[in-house]
Computed example of a mutant assay.
Amino acid sequence: MSESPSTPAAPVIDEATIGDAVDAALAAIAAAATTAELKQVRIAHVGDASVLSSANRAIKDLPKDQKAAAGKLVGQGKGRVQKQLAARQSELTAAEEEAALAAETVDVTLPTDLRPRGASHPLTVLQDRINDFFVGIGWEIEEGPEIESSWLNFDALNADPEHPSRSLQDTLYVAPEGSGMLLRTQTSPVQIRAMLERGAPLYVACPGTVYRADEIDATHSPMFHQVEGLAIDKDLTMANLVGTLDAFAAHIFGGTPITRLRPNHFPFTEPSAEMDFRCFRCEARHGLDHDADPSCRVCGGTGWIEMGGCGMVHPNVLRAAGVDPEEYQGFAFGLGIERILMLRNGVADMRDIVEGDVRFSQHYGTEI
């Protein structure tokens, strides 16, 4: 037959047992060095499983004539322990607060930044540098609205009614439908506005934000920045255009750049060209007699970097802006500021530029 489970022995309630329990509790309280240690002491010596608490619960089972004496003995012992716990708690709490204050002391007489340091976005810094160049050669900086009419954005720039750039796949139109209003796809409308308002001669650079119906990825964004230049005067030629862009490249990239023109077609200009300059990262930078590095990520192994579109202003554009093409000629060009930043500073992903993380800007400091 199985034996019945044994019943736990009732705690002994006498002066020796209670005295030993109290002495052990007082010694543990005195040895506690932190409030966390004191909490464990409290659980061990006055918690539900402690000798004193067990003895207190056992009083009810004593004979009636022993209950008073036992209650007094246990109550006095537990009272001494609780009193010492409270005193030690106050001591340790005060000591820990004093230590925390000492560790966190701040010398209010020392100079300090009341606000975290930020940084200008590198696109802003680069645009300022570009503006400085054009102001330095005597040009003016011109700005215009970002919501434009189709006439200023396309028609005045000699774009055919069926030109692909007018489609919804490329251009973001503004409601209501058929209003002829759109988010400008280039800063060229600012040039038209300047000619209409001020006539010729005219030398303006037009930096600003432009919009295209693109998905954002490593090399594209639906919103980006351009700077376009326009010079209208008597006797201007392609040589003036090349000289201006050569000087611009030297200002932005340093050194003495080697440039070339490739024939192209733009409605705004005739003749039109793409301007490239010799890669400044690989062996191609040493001159035309040096081969490009096939693994160069900047020029793609070609030795040339595309700078932007340019050319002589089309006579139709001059007429649309009220300028006589028989008397004045001019040149124009357009450059992507993000592209310049990515080439100049090795930014591999367009998304790093537009995501707004201040650490990206702080990396460049106050000068890029």
Rank of each mutant, 00 (worst) to 15 (best):
L183E: 05
R260K: 14
C296Y: 11
D132K: 15
Q82P: 06
G138H: 13
G19K: 13
L126H: 11
G322I: 02
K78Q: 06
K39L: 04
S53C: 01
K234H: 05
R80I: 06
I353M: 12
E355C: 07
A55R: 10
D357I: 14
F134A: 07
A95Q: 07
G254R: 11
Y364M: 04
A100S: 13
A86E: 03
V347A: 07
C310L: 08
L38K: 15
T187E: 08
T187G: 11
E162M: 13
R115E: 03
H363Q: 03
A320Y: 00
G118N: 00
I216N: 14
E270R: 08
R198W: 00
W139M: 09
L341W: 11
T209I: 12
H45T: 10
E355D: 15
S6Y: 10
V204W: 01
R212E: 05
L157P: 09
M307G: 09
L341M: 00
A348M: 12
V22T: 06
R212G: 11
G229K: 07
A36Y: 00
T366K: 06
G303C: 10
F133K: 00
G254Q: 09
F248N: 13
A321F: 01
P161I: 14
A205N: 07
T17H: 10
M312D: 11
D132S: 11
N240S: 08
V41F: 03
W151K: 04
N240I: 14
G47V: 05
P315R: 08
L236E: 03
N345E: 12
A68H: 15
R281T: 11
A103Q: 05
T219H: 14
L196G: 02
L52E: 07
A284W: 04
A33V: 12
I43Q: 14
I147E: 01
N240F: 11
I137A: 06
V354C: 07
S150Q: 12
T302G: 10
A100C: 10
G322Y: 04
R115W: 03
G243A: 02
P201L: 10
V323K: 07
L172Q: 01
Q226C: 07
E177T: 14
E96L: 00
Q169L: 13
R319P: 12
L152S: 02
R359A: 09
I305A: 02
T302A: 08
E96K: 05
L241W: 15
V22F: 05
D48Y: 15
E91G: 04
T269Y: 10
D233Y: 06
I13A: 09
E215C: 14
L123W: 06
C279N: 02
K234P: 04
E3R: 15
G71S: 08
D235Q: 12
T93D: 10
Q66R: 15
P257T: 14
A9G: 11
F253T: 03
E142N: 14
A21C: 09
D48K: 15
A247K: 15
A87W: 10
D132C: 00
V298M: 05
G144D: 04
A16M: 14
P267W: 13
H314P: 09
P116G: 11
I147L: 08
